[in-house]
Every structure is written in C-alpha cells, then in structure tokens.
Amino acid sequence: MLRYSLKRLLSLGLSLLAASAVIFLTIEIVPGDPASYMLGINAQADTVAALREELGLNVSAFERYISWVGGMLTGDFGTSYTYRTPVVDMIGDRIMISLPLAIYALSLSTLIAFPAGILAASKRGSVTDVSIMGATQVGVAIPNFWFAMLLVVVFSINLRWFSAGGFPGWDKGLIVGLKALTLPAISLALPQASILARVMRSALIDTMNEDFVRTARAKGLSKRQAMWRHALRNAMIPVLTIIGLQFSFLIAGAIIIENVFFLPGLGRLVFQSISQRDLIVVESVVMLLVFAVVIVTFIVDLTYAAVDPRLRGRS
C-alpha cells in the first residue's frame, strides 16, 4: 500500500510540473502584451518599457517560468497586472466560495445518487426503477443554468426563501453562507446526481450478476444481504471514477452558475482576467485548478486501492 501511494505521489508531482510548463507556454503564445494593454493604445513607448520592467516582463521567458514556479512553491503567486494586489489574496477570497460550493454540490449529488441508484438496482424493472431512471434522464437533459433560473423564480421570487444571488461572506455566519450557496449547489448537483445514479445502478446490476454473488447466495445470504455485503463494494470502482471527474469539474466548471447567481468564484475570476489580459492571474488560477484536479485524482487512486486489494500490489 505504501509503495502504491508513493508511486501515485511521484506521478502526481510529475503531472504538476508538466502542467505548469504547458500553461506557461500557452499563455506565452497568446497575443497581447499586458503592459501595452494596461496603458492603452496611446501610451508612449518608453512608458510601456518602464512598465514592462516593473512587471518583470523584460527578462527571458525561461527566467520568468523559473521565478513563477519558484514563487508558487513559496506561496508567492505574483501581483495582478490589473489590480496591483497579490494574486494569492485574490485567489484566496474566491476559493473560499468555489471550494465550499463544489463540496456542497458534490455532497448533495452523492446523497441523492447513492440511494436512488441502489434502490433502482435492487428493484430492477419495477415502477420505482422506471421512475428513478426517467427522472435521471430528465436531470441529465436539463441545462443547469436554465434549472438555476427556474430555482430562482420559484424559491427566490415567489416563495422568497432564498436570495436570488450574491454572497454575504462567511463572516456573517456559517448558516448564512451555506444558505446563499444552496440554490447554486442544487443546480450544480442535479445533472451530476443524475449521471451518478445511473452509473451506480448499472454498476450494481452488473455486479449482482457476478459469480461471487451467486456463491454468497448459496451460503444462505438473502438477495439484500448479498447486495450490501458483496456487490456494493465491488460496484464502487466506476462510481468513484465518476465522482472524481465530477469534483474536478465542479471546482473549475461552475462559471455559468456563478454568473447566474452573481457569486465571486474562481470561474468568474478567470473569465475577467482573460478579458483584461491579466495573464499572471490566469496562469495562477489555471495552475491551481490543475493542482485540484491532480489532487482529486490522487485521492481517487488511493480510494481505489482501499476498495480493491488487487490494486495494492504484493506487500
């Protein structure tokens, strides 16, 4: 198990290094000089040159890459070209919204999907199964921004249970914060839960047809016991894969929902920074997202090994 973890950890480090190089190169290729952009089209050449020097843009690309990576390792993400504030502070504020939102949405999605998938699988072919599968079909089909607007119309405008958008800040209390994130989390969770429930159902049905479930039944386990004790854990591998992918998506991909609910999250930050040529922010946020994805993959890999002894290697 330890060797397996170390191996995964090594591949994690290499992935991050490769990703940082790719991100840096991509941003280098993108046309547009941040200094000229910031000073406008009528700027004097020597003013631009002075700003370039101040921003550290006049050294070679390789030197900038090294100082960027070195800075990140020591917690210094540089200074935003546009706002002249440390990038790390900007990201810090935003991540306090994006990360809780992703965790909230994923928890909701899992809480809905597991019981729904298990119930559908155990009552395969029944009215319950058909209804659950029908509902998930709709859940996958509905665009989540449209569903988000629907939620706003019903729960904010008509019922007035939730505010229609914005975020009051965590200093107003945990409950207030969570309440503001509830509608966005639900709209993010709906399609995710639908997909997850379908994966859970089909994985469980497949596993229930395995020979070892028949062996368990021959020992005297009821169908229900065989499912809970033997099939469920074996069905977890595809489910964990999907959860991992979904979490990565939720951190970075909530941009539309953030816009619908006016949430100052990471998605909106990237969007704004790109339109303002604030490349250093873009680089850092993208790197952070890659980091999140790689970490999630690492955790999923470790969970695989916890679930399936065959992956732990000979110890």
Binding site: D211, F212, T215, A216
Partner: peptide, 13 residues
C-alpha cells in the same frame, strides 16, 4: 454448493 469457475466464484475484495 460448489461451482464450476473458481476464478470468479470468490469476492475479490
């Protein structure tokens, strides 16, 4: 009861 296929008759986890 004992089955034909021992490779798949046991729960791998």
């Amino acid at each position: 009861m004992i089955f034909q296929e021992p490779m798949t008759a046991l729960n791998p986890v």
